[in-house]
Computed example of a mutant assay.
Amino acid sequence: MFIAKVTGSVVATQKVGSMTGHKLLVVEPYRLEPDQRQSLVTTGRTFIAVDTIGAGENDFVLITQGSSARLTPETKTLPIDAVIIGIVDKVHIDDREVSVDRD
């Protein structure tokens, strides 16, 4: 599992039948800034994840990938590699809250 920020969405009118009705979001993984360890910073990558919980643009979310992405009741029959399984409210590292940029 890891934290990512939702940066956009994907519309695909032609897709495999089992994917009909599933929202696809562009997500950008984040990591803990290594020097001060007080904020999350982008990894510079992006990919597509299926949204199962109603996330929106600029939300920080929890992502799971690989075979684990198909272990939820909503995704067990989908041909996916990444799924959003939670919306992040706060992050705590070393007994302090870490800044998450919600712009």
Score class of each variant (00 low, 15 high):
Asp51Val: 02
Asp101Trp: 07
Leu78Val: 06
Gly56Ala: 12
Ile87Val: 15
Tyr30Met: 08
Thr77Tyr: 02
Ser9Lys: 13
Thr52Cys: 13
Ile53Asp: 14
Lys15Pro: 08
His92Tyr: 12
Val27Glu: 05
Asp103Arg: 14
Glu74Met: 13
Lys90Leu: 06
Glu74Ile: 05
Lys23Leu: 10
Val98Thr: 12
Val41Leu: 09
Ala55Asp: 07
Tyr30Glu: 04
Gly21Gln: 09
Asp94Tyr: 06
Gly86Glu: 02
Val61His: 02
Phe60Tyr: 15
Asp35Trp: 00
Ser68Ala: 14
Gly66Met: 05
Arg70Ser: 11
Leu32Tyr: 05
Ala49Trp: 04
Leu32Cys: 04
Asp103Tyr: 06
Ile53Trp: 13
Ser9Ala: 10
Pro73His: 09
His22Arg: 14
Gln65Asp: 08
Asp103Ile: 03
Met1Trp: 02
Thr20Leu: 10
Phe47Val: 01
Ala55Lys: 01
Ile53His: 14
His22Lys: 15
Lys5Arg: 15
Thr42Cys: 08
Val10His: 05
Thr75Val: 06
Arg37Lys: 15
Ser18Ile: 10
Ala55Gln: 04
Ile63Asp: 04
Ala49Glu: 07
Ile3Ala: 07
Leu40His: 15
Thr42Arg: 13
Gly44Met: 11
Val6Glu: 12
Ala4Met: 07
Val88Lys: 01
Glu57Pro: 03
Val41Lys: 14
His22Asn: 15
Thr46Gly: 02
Leu40Ala: 13
Thr77Leu: 03
Lys23Trp: 02
Pro29Ala: 07
Asp59Phe: 03
Lys90Thr: 09
Asp35Ile: 09
Val11Ile: 14
Asn58Cys: 05
Ser18Arg: 14
Ser18Asn: 12
Val98Asn: 08
Phe60Arg: 01
Gly44Ser: 12
Val88Arg: 03
Asp94Arg: 07
Thr72Cys: 00
Lys5Gly: 02
Asp95Ala: 11
Phe2Lys: 14
Arg31Glu: 10
Asn58Ala: 09
Ser39Glu: 13
Leu24Ala: 13
Leu40Asn: 10
Phe60Leu: 11
Gly44Leu: 11
Val26Ile: 15
Val83Ser: 09
Leu40Cys: 12
Val83Glu: 06
Ser99Lys: 15
Thr42His: 07
Leu32Met: 15
Thr43Asn: 04
Val27Trp: 02
